[in-house]
Design a protein around this nucleic acid. Structure first.
Lengths: 358, 358
DNA sequence: CTGAAAGCGCTTACAG
DNA sequence: CTGAAAGCGCTTACAG
């Protein structure tokens, strides 16, 4: 009687079923179960009867039917390049919590820095009729914006280039500059002779470019000349970073410091360590992104600790307060963290200032 | 003409719209856009016309309407306790990739080891009419199973107790035993005098219990007597682990080793280190769960490296091959990894065997 | 206080 | 080769 068996017997209770059980109409049942009994002056007896029937049968509304009819889905989409990275996983987790506590549903997709996957995801979001698209660090920056705009869907960018939409991010140029300054300063203090290298990211990736610009600016400030072989592209994966780092240490005998652009290059370095020459251990490292365990390393490491939680909260608030139509850029403060071994070389340095702001 | 303005102007193209533009019926358009033109002998001209109209207008089917009608959603649900943990984030990422490459949609929720959030999530999954529920490490173990069973929804458990469903997991008792044996053995080899402590997890949590049983068994094997104050509960968060670890080091002067049950206790330890006494650095640590950076620590650390990727692949295959109705337990092999500093104390030991299997 | 009916955007027998 | 029509489970004017 409940439902047709079929291949996938989803024994699911519908409004109609509750109406049949209680003897009231679908309309009445719908009103009650949506908590609008009061508003429609439905008697307490009727209400209680319906509620208890719903509870007994564990009625769960068919959200697809509801949103088809009501034209509101309460679904929010978040697109991240990966989850295996503390930065994005914190962002995703905060997103999910905020959405849930706001009675919204979080749809999270992972796109591996792949343009096609990103575009597929946006189209999927359109198919799901999400209320707002939250995009973290898109590669297909323009296409994504264009697709959202065409469909008239709200959009907020995180960890990205300023855009035609609201953008919430770290000031990557500034943070890249600060990290590089501290790295170079610590190298000088330790009287390291070798050059500084920049490893990680992709040439056509805006965030990478900004951080790299910061790095180059810091070199220029100190009157250091530099050549292109100091800037080493990798994809955003540990494997290619591992290969590049291995190659780097084979080719260059004298490495002073390495700027690791985000966590996958750090994982690549970790992979390289078991076979690494001893001089690996004295290199100064600047890592753009934080993982708690890093701070215990017996290496000289500087870390940019971005605040993905605050980033997401800011982005969510922009959505909640309906400011998605405006254009805006919101820089979220970051921290610089070091290992104890690194701290020694920074103590005496007065050339380092904190985050600059622009 | 395209769509009514309204408050949220979702400029979205429907089948009806494409039908109007091309002059064909909704039926024909639907068939073509679902790639069934051939099957219904629809002429190439018609097909091409419809396709190009759809492309021009970036037609995206309304998935809610589709699933309401067709009674299939192609949505798969994954429930994890957190994403800020390599183990679960890898699982989630693999899940998303498998689903996408299989033309399914991944719905990922985060429940923070909270029973209520878990139950809400399952009900949400029911509302979304997910085809299969993948549950990683549920706290409300019984209720979750019960809800799925009542609704007739397929279910697969990961990182969990054997259950009435398919369960894919590490053999936690075995891995806990192996890790504990190696920990105790290394402590003996290093002639450490203090006891071993077990930190992390919750008393009513099955996985915690299994690992703890392994720990106690290893103690018993060596004829070591033990008392309850060697087993320290924390929630699954770094903050409470931090407090407990701090307390532990204050109370006990002589600590030989610590079994850290999962990554949040490790994060708690990391937080404690800046204020920690020196003896922290010589303690032997056994950590149940892996984070790449750990292997670079200049501490004596043993690590159980589970394989969340393989776990998810196995679980997904069970779903794909339609074996969700059977009951089954699938143990996924794990690895033991050590830091170089720890390796020294294991070299001479013959009392350690590899994973045992049951 | 309660119910009959329209319609959201699809899919799918069925008819021609 | 193509189309008219029913119906998935809801919400919401509208009627009484």
């Amino acid at each position: 009687m409940a439902a047709k068996p079929g291949n996938h017997p989803q024994r699911t209770t519908s409004l109609k079923e509750i109406a049949r059980i209680t003897g009231f109409s679908i309309t009445t049942v719908s009103m009650v179960l949506n908590g609008r009994a009061e508003k429609f002056n439905i008697s307490d007896g009727t209400r209680d009867l319906i509620f208890s029937a719903a509870r007994e049968n564990n009625y769960q509304p068919n959200l697809h039917a509801r949103s088809l009819r009501s034209r509101t889905t309460d679904i929010l989409g978040l697109m991240v390049p990966t989850l295996n990275n503390r930065f994005f996983s914190e962002m995703a987790e905060t997103f999910e919590s905020l959405a849930r506590s706001n009675q919204k549903f979080a749809l999270i997709t992972v796109t591996h820095y792949d343009r096609k996957e990103e575009i597929d995801t946006i189209n999927y979001f359109m198919s799901q009729k999400v209320e707002c698209v939250f995009t973290a660090n898109p590669t297909a920056f323009d296409e994504v914006s264009e697709l959202c705009a065409r469909a008239g869907t709200k959009q907020i960018l995180l960890d990205s280039e300023p855009s035609a939409n609201q953008t919430v991010t770290t000031d990557n140029l500034d943070a890249g500059l600060v990290l590089s300054r501290m790295l170079l300063s610590s190298m000088e203090e330790a009287q390291r002779s070798g050059r500084a290298y920049y490893v990680g990211g992709m040439a056509d990736h805006k965030i990478t470019q900004h951080r790299l610009t910061g790095f180059k600016t810091a070199l220029a400030e100190r009157g250091l000349d530099y050549s292109d072989d100091q800037f080493i592209q990798t994809q955003f994966d540990a494997e290619s970073a591992y290969r590049e780092i291995k190659k780097l240490f084979r080719k260059k005998r004298d490495i002073g410091g390495i700027f690791l652009n985000s966590l996958p290059p750090l994982d690549g370095l970790v992979r390289f360590f078991p076979e690494a020459p001893d001089r690996c251990r004295t290199v100064h490292y600047g890592v753009f992104d934080y993982n708690p365990v890093m701070t215990l390393l017996d290496l000289r490491v500087l870390v940019i600790k971005q605040n993905p939680d605050a980033m997401m909260r800011t982005a969510y608030r922009l959505f909640e307060t309906g400011r998605t139509a405006e254009k805006g850029i919101h820089y979220i403060p970051y921290e610089v963290v070091t290992t104890p071994a690194m701290k020694l070389y920074l103590a005496g340095s007065s050339r380092i200032s904190g985050p600059l702001g622009r």
